[in-house]
Design a protein around this nucleic acid. Structure first.
Lengths: 126, 126
DNA sequence: CTGTATCCAGCAGGATACTG
DNA sequence: CAGTATCCTGCTGGATACAG
C-alpha cells in the first residue's frame, strides 16, 4: 500500500478507484477471523461445522459472516449439496491460496519471534 | 497456527503457554491499523505526527493505542527527545521488520488479485 | 508536539430462536 | 446441518479537553 501521487492526469480516477478498492480489500482481509479461517482451510475442503471446530473460539455468527465476505471477494468457494440434512463445503480459490501463503508467513513469523516478544513484554511491563 | 495435540506429558503446560501466547500475538497483530502502521513505517523513522499523516484515516487515539501495543510486543522502538515541544521517533525493530516482510507480501497479493476480486464481487452481487 | 483521560454514540458480536 | 433474523449488551473508537 504505497501512497500514490495524483497528478491530475486523465486516468487519475482509475488509480483512485484501484487504491480505494485495495484499501477495502485490506480492511476486509486484515482481521483476525478472516485470517484464521483462511489458515484453517489450508489445502483442505471443510464443512461449515468442521470449520467451526477448527477455528478456535469463533461464533456461529462470525463464521457465517466472514465466510460470506470471503466468498464475495472470491477467496473462498462454497459448494452446496442439496441433501437432507444439507451439506456445504468450503475451500480456498486460487486467490485465496495466494493469500494463504502470506498468512502462513505471518504464522511462521509469530513462532520465530515468540521468545523475542515474550521477553519484550516482560521488559515493557517491568 | 497448527492445532496441537496435548498428550498429557510433562511439558504440556509449556506447549499450551506458547500456543496461547501465539494466539495473543496473532490477535494483536492481525488488525487493520497495526498492519498499516507497520507498512507505513517500513525502513523509515517517523515522528508521531508524520505517522498520523502517513496512515490514512487513523485517529489520534488508535495511533497511540496501536503504537503502545507494538512497542509492548517489541516490534516498534520509541525514542523520546526531551526537547520542547517534544519529539518522538518510531521505527521498526528487527522483529518488526520481519513482520513487515509478511505485510508487504500481503500488499503485493492485494494488488496482484485486485482485478480478480473486483470481478468476483460483481459476480457475487449479480 | 505528544500523550492521557473522559465521555458517549454506534456498532460488533454473542445468545437465542426459528426456517429449510 | 446450515443459514437467517432478532435482540441486547459491552466494547470500540471518535471527539474533545487538558497536561507536560
Amino acid at each position: 500500500m504505497v501512497t500514490k501521487q495524483y497528478t491530475g492526469s486523465a486516468d487519475d480516477a482509475d488509480l483512485r478507484r484501484a487504491d480505494s478498492l485495495a484499501r477495502e480489500i485490506f480492511s476486509d482481509v486484515a482481521n483476525k477471523w478472516a485470517l484464521l479461517i483462511i489458515e484453517a482451510l489450508g489445502e483442505r475442503t471443510l464443512r461449515f461445522s468442521e470449520l467451526r471446530n477448527e477455528v478456535e473460539g469463533v461464533s456461529h455468527k462470525m463464521l457465517t459472516q466472514n465466510l460470506r465476505m470471503l466468498e464475495r471477494n472470491g477467496l473462498v468457494e462454497r459448494t452446496v449439496y442439496p441433501t437432507v440434512p444439507p451439506r456445504v463445503d468450503y475451500r480456498l480459490t486460487e486467490a485465496g491460496r495466494g493469500l494463504r501463503k502470506t498468512v502462513d508467513a505471518m504464522c511462521d513469523w509469530t513462532h520465530r519471534y515468540l521468545g523475542h516478544i515474550d521477553e519484550a513484554r516482560r521488559r515493557f511491563g517491568g
